[in-house]
Computed example of a mutant assay.
Amino acid sequence: MSVFASPRFLPAVMWADAASCAATGALQVAFTGALAGLTGLPAPLLMGTGVFLLVYAAAAAFMASRSTPPRTLIGLVVAGNFGWAVACIALLVSGMFAITVLGMAWVLAQVACVVVLAELQWTGLRRTRGSAGAVTGLTPAGRW
């Protein structure tokens, strides 16, 4: 059995997603002013996304703790993670803010993290679909 097909793979990836979002969100909420000064990102953006990340971390932890991963919700998480990456890139190329080199690194680190997590989540969903198809609404061919 492949590591991707393991019944614990998706929960493990969701725990990693929850942990990374909790850490990033906590940093952004606790050190909003300092991060705004260092990154060139606006404090309201850092605070707002920090709070969102903390709420999302709780939701991801809930999904990770289920004995049967909620595949439809995890599918939405995959889309959301890719959307977050696109929004981060759009923020950088928009030129709306005088983002510092550290700010670019902060945003690009988030892009890298969510793209890797989304790919792992998508891979886990594809590899485990045969074992959970009857429960999740997937057709026998594995399509939504």
Rank of each mutant, 00 (worst) to 15 (best):
residue 1 M to A: 13
residue 5 A to M: 01
residue 6 S to K: 06
residue 7 P to S: 08
residue 8 R to M: 13
residue 8 R to I: 10
residue 9 F to N: 10
residue 11 P to A: 07
residue 12 A to P: 00
residue 12 A to C: 04
residue 14 M to Q: 09
residue 14 M to I: 00
residue 15 W to H: 06
residue 15 W to K: 10
residue 15 W to S: 12
residue 17 D to P: 01
residue 18 A to Y: 01
residue 18 A to I: 00
residue 19 A to Y: 00
residue 20 S to E: 06
residue 20 S to L: 02
residue 20 S to C: 03
residue 22 A to K: 08
residue 23 A to P: 01
residue 24 T to I: 00
residue 28 Q to T: 06
residue 32 T to I: 01
residue 33 G to Q: 13
residue 34 A to K: 09
residue 34 A to L: 09
residue 35 L to W: 03
residue 36 A to G: 08
residue 36 A to I: 01
residue 36 A to Y: 03
residue 37 G to N: 11
residue 37 G to H: 07
residue 38 L to R: 12
residue 39 T to E: 06
residue 40 G to T: 05
residue 40 G to L: 04
residue 41 L to A: 09
residue 41 L to I: 09
residue 43 A to K: 05
residue 46 L to M: 13
residue 47 M to R: 11
residue 50 G to Q: 04
residue 50 G to T: 03
residue 53 L to A: 15
residue 54 L to P: 00
residue 54 L to N: 05
residue 54 L to M: 08
residue 55 V to S: 08
residue 55 V to Y: 01
residue 56 Y to A: 14
residue 58 A to R: 13
residue 59 A to G: 05
residue 61 A to F: 02
residue 65 S to M: 09
residue 68 T to S: 10
residue 68 T to D: 08
residue 69 P to D: 03
residue 69 P to E: 05
residue 69 P to A: 11
residue 70 P to N: 11
residue 70 P to Y: 07
residue 72 T to D: 13
residue 73 L to N: 12
residue 73 L to Q: 13
residue 73 L to V: 01
residue 74 I to K: 11
residue 74 I to V: 15
residue 75 G to K: 02
residue 76 L to V: 12
residue 76 L to I: 06
residue 76 L to F: 05
residue 77 V to L: 11
residue 78 V to L: 03
residue 78 V to C: 03
residue 78 V to R: 04
residue 79 A to S: 07
residue 82 F to L: 15
residue 84 W to L: 04
residue 84 W to E: 03
residue 85 A to R: 04
residue 85 A to Y: 01
residue 85 A to D: 05
residue 86 V to Y: 11
residue 86 V to W: 09
residue 89 I to K: 10
residue 90 A to H: 01
residue 91 L to Y: 06
residue 92 L to C: 11
residue 93 V to M: 14
residue 95 G to H: 12
residue 96 M to P: 00
residue 97 F to W: 15
residue 97 F to H: 15
residue 98 A to L: 06
residue 99 I to C: 07
residue 101 V to M: 11
residue 102 L to H: 06
residue 104 M to Y: 04
residue 105 A to F: 13
residue 105 A to L: 12
residue 106 W to Q: 13
residue 108 L to W: 03
residue 108 L to G: 02
residue 110 Q to F: 02
residue 111 V to C: 14
residue 112 A to T: 09
residue 112 A to V: 10
residue 114 V to Q: 06
residue 115 V to H: 01
residue 115 V to D: 05
residue 115 V to W: 02
residue 116 V to I: 10
residue 117 L to D: 15
residue 119 E to N: 07
residue 120 L to S: 14
residue 122 W to H: 15
residue 123 T to Q: 15
residue 123 T to D: 13
residue 127 R to S: 13
residue 127 R to A: 14
residue 127 R to Q: 15
residue 128 T to K: 05
residue 129 R to P: 03
residue 130 G to A: 14
residue 130 G to E: 15
residue 131 S to E: 11
residue 132 A to E: 14
residue 134 A to L: 12
residue 134 A to Q: 12
residue 136 T to P: 01
residue 139 T to P: 02
residue 140 P to C: 07
residue 142 G to M: 13
residue 142 G to N: 11
residue 143 R to H: 11
residue 143 R to Y: 09
residue 144 W to Q: 08
residue 144 W to I: 09
